[in-house]
Write a protein that binds this DNA or RNA. Structure first.
Length: 474
RNA sequence: GGCGGCGUAGCCAAGAGGUAAGGCAGCGGUCUGCAAAACCGUUAUACCCCGGUUCGAUUCCGGGCGCCGCCUCCA
């Protein structure tokens, strides 16, 4: 089935046709690394993690680039304030961010290019733009001339006149046009710099993304993404520079996700109204956090609500319960009678799941079909949990595979805090056996002591007709 | 002021021109030595207001009210 993507450029859903068949090339604007990542940042990363997994399941080869802008005014200011070099400050926050991503179960990008590693290429592109008459030099600064790019404003749907009115911030008299933006900024005293044909300086914002996306993905690339707040001016400027430079379409599909608000206002570093990822991970499991962020469509803003994340925690718990029951059924003794039990067709949920994602990555709908599947499985399995008839084993096994597949796409597989890799399974199972014998002898006091004792250690026991199961609690 | 978006049950959140997914919460029940979980039922005649188009609109169009984002660094 075709995939539809809402394209900011046209403001409508369009069928996605990759430039090169079977291959998707994605550039997602990463952070300016001057602090820890907050929930708003990670929303986009989680979204694209699912999008990449989805494309892979659909048989596409995916190349995903997420950059780091590791030099800018704020980084310089903060580094100065803390008495460290801008480079080491940036590196610190880059590794912190990558760590956050890993904790969140986000697959690594194919490339994480940094602005400062591409100075040479940036200078080349700026030189080319000057040669083409699209940029000009003033006192060691280089500006892009917006007037030289007639379709400027096509992404953010702003006419040049409107922007003239809007340009009310202190106008730099040296610019030919107030809307012109810096490609290269000369270094002031004490600022880090690189040598260039225009003197010592550093790249402006915007240009690094053009250069790196073209370098790693070519033009036109398939999907260029970022938060909605990047539409203007960042992406608008990227289009201008890139298309003026290459003479070709820069990106074919522009995808922008909505902000995460906190207490009704946008979460943003500049206002201090933030909830950082590493703080959130102290309170919530990465799975619940992911599911929460994916439970609204990416183009709708979210007002972050920790209670809702806890609700997701409970929903996941229930889903795990159903999976456990399937495991018990598959492991237990089958009922070898001729009893034929017809199970519903679980395959419909698979179709629902993927068709939801095909429709502009509708993760809320995909999640709904995941939960429907899990509920349905949990419901039918209750009828025969002690001894499943043999007729049911194969469908049950494929249901389990399906559950695992959908979880993988959503990225909510258990990775930490699970049973595996802790080396305690043997002990717990031994205790469960002992407790079982105690229960049979009606020595409930001792049995309960074992259960509550394990509970203190974070291990939850649940007695089912088919036997006792255990899991890691909170 | 300009551009864009949103307003669905107690809360969160999908959605189609023909009366509406999923999650959580509450209540009642089944099961259980107890507990927990699960399951069943229920809250649910839920679509901001007013016009218009239509056999029929919550879904399309116009207006109103409310909320939000961008227009300046920002994911």
């Amino acid at each position: 089935m075709p995939i539809y993507i809402h394209n900011t450029l046209t403001n409508r859903k369009e069928e996605f046709v990759p430039q090169v068949e079977g291959k998707v090339r994605i550039y997602s604007c990463g952070l300016t690394v001057q602090g820890y990542a907050h929930i708003g940042h990670i929303r986009g990363a989680v979204l694209f993690d699912v999008i990449r997994r989805f494309f892979r399941k659909k048989g596409y080869e995916v190349i995903y680039v997420q950059n780091f802008t590791d030099i800018d005014d704020k980084i310089i200011a903060k580094a100065k304030h803390e008495g460290v070099s801008p480079a080491s400050l940036a590196e610190y926050y880059i590794s912190a961010y990558l760590q956050d991503e890993e904790e969140m179960g986000i697959m690594q990008a194919d490339y994480n290019p940094r602005a400062t590693h591409h100075i040479k290429e940036i200078i080349e592109v700026v030189e080319a733009l000057i040669r083409k008459g699209c940029a000009y030099v003033v006192d060691g600064d280089v500006y892009f001339s917006v007037a030289s790019f007639p379709s400027y404003g096509k992404l953010s749907k702003r006419s040049l006149d409107e922007m003239m009115i809007g340009a009310r911030v202190e106008v730099d008299e040296r610019k030919r046009d107030p809307r012109d933006f810096a490609l290269w900024k000369s270094a002031k005293e004490g600022e880090p710099y690189w040598e260039s044909p225009w003197g010592k300086g550093r790249p402006g914002w915007h240009i690094e993304c053009s250069v790196m996306s073209i370098k790693y993905l070519g033009v036109p690339l398939d999907i260029h993404a970022g938060g909605q707040d990047l539409i203007f001016p960042h992406h608008e400027n990227e289009i201008a520079q890139s298309e003026a430079f290459t003479g070709q379409t820069f990106a074919r599909y522009w995808l922008h996700w909505a902000p995460v608000n906190l207490k009704g206002e946008k979460m943003a570093k500049s206002t201090g109204n933030v909830f950082i990822v590493r703080e959130a991970l102290k309170q919530f499991s990465p799975q619940a956090l992911r599911l929460y962020l994916l439970s609204s469509h990416y183009r709708s803003p979210i007002d972050f609500d920790g209670e809702k994340v806890e609700e997701m925690e409970r929903a996941l718990e229930r889903a795990r319960e159903a999976e456990e029951k399937v495991d018990i059924a598959l492991k237990g003794t089958a009922d070898y009678s001729e009893r034929i039990v017809e199970l519903p067709d679980f395959g419909v949920y698979r179709e629902q799941f993927y068709s939801a994602l095909e429709d502009d990555f509708n993760t809320p709908r995909a999640i709904a079909s995941y939960f429907s599947l899990v509920s349905e499985v949990g419901r039918v399995i209750d009828d025969f949990l002690p001894k499943p008839p043999t007729s049911v084993l194969l469908p049950l096994w494929s249901a389990k595979k399906l559950i695992q597949e959908l979880k993988w796409v959503l990225g909510i597989e258990e990775r930490r805090g699970g049973k595996e890799g802790r080396g305690i399974e043997g002990f717990v199972e031994l205790l469960i056996k002992v407790r079982d014998k105690l229960r049979k002898q009606k020595l409930y006091e001792l049995a309960d002591e074992i259960r509550s004792g394990l509970g203190t250690l974070g291990i939850v026991l649940e007695d089912h007709p088919g036997g006792t199961i255990w899991r890691m609690g909170k």
